[in-house]
Design a binder for these strands. Structure first.
Lengths: 164, 164
DNA sequence: CGCGATTGAGAAAATTTTTCCCTTAAATTT
DNA sequence: AAATTTAAGGGAAAAATTTTCTCAATCGCG
């Protein structure tokens, strides 16, 4: 079970995973070893999934983000499995959800520009047969974070009321 | 300018930032020092924005993702600035875009369940006056990665044709 | 009360990052 | 084409950090 100290550790690592364990320990009031063990445990339990470098979209030339809403008449597991496999092949697709409601699937795609989007789109529909598609483009990215809110974490005995 | 080696380094770090510099060097055919210097440079230039821990949404009790489409009659910079500030306060909002087309803004929000979504929604509309809102829920997260495609990176002299 | 079980701490070992100094290769100037 | 600067790589050593090991304190509970 995650406790308050774990939560603070997670908060720090979500923000910046380069801070040394000793420093994390200092901030949460622990010495290096127990702090290190907690982090280790959080990794083993899968609470921490991975540690990654976050790149600047502009620098890697993907300045345009598009959201693609897909509605399909196909609703069986096989079709979805195939669809999912195809999608996973495209590195441009950074998010992919099955949705409730009118739209069946939602994709977030990143590409350099509109032309590249069009090229991507053609490749996509050539690979898989989808009936109804609609795309909207993001003009401005106001917020985009990998940090999940930690105020809903179930800690020892008490559910905390919302508060970061 | 980013070259092929840099791109391979970025690819490795995007996937797993815990691999030692010496090992990265080995994989890209460099010794530790020049590899380390390249990484340093990529950080200074802002190509690498940060290094973070990615948490498991389930483990931190945010099992539901919702997309909120907002249409407003307000279209001036002041209103947007205020709106953006309000939104940034909510840790539940992990993405926030200004869109082209019918919908003005798109938010991605993560919460534990539908009730929590409703509570969030009430807090949101109490803080800011928005006219037209529509929410759709993700039933299944099929793909969600922080890894940007690197096939569009402009490397020395030649633009690479699409190929991961 | 005592007895595991859990959690924390300090010191030391192992690994990794970072610095320093030197060599090579490429580019630029004359 | 020679000379000179500039950029990039490499090895070894220093510094910092992670990881292991051993031991002490604390807590829950029969």
């Amino acid at each position: 079970m995650i406790d308050r100290i774990d939560r603070r550790i997670l908060s720090i690592l979500q923000e910046d995973s380069t801070v040394p364990v000793a420093e994390i320990g200092r901030r949460v009031g622990l010495s290096t070893t127990p702090c290190w063990r907690r982090i280790q445990k959080l990794e083993e339990e899968g609470v921490i999934k991975r540690r990654v470098a976050i790149l600047d979209a502009r620098s890697v030339n993907v300045k345009v983000a598009a959201f693609i809403s897909i509605t399909t008449s196909q609703h069986n597991a096989d079709w979805l499995a195939k669809f999912a496999d195809v999608i996973r092949e495209f590195p441009e697709v950074v998010e992919f959800y099955r949705m409730a409601g009118k739209v069946d699937y939602l994709l977030k795609v990143v590409v350099p520009d509109i032309e590249a989007y069009d090229a991507f789109y053609k490749r996509l529909i050539s690979k898989i047969d989808i009936s109804d598609v609609s795309t909207t483009f993001a003009m401005e990215e106001i917020k985009n974070t990998s940090q999940l809110p930690l105020n809903y974490v179930v800690t020892e005995k008490t559910r905390e009321p919302a508060k970061e």
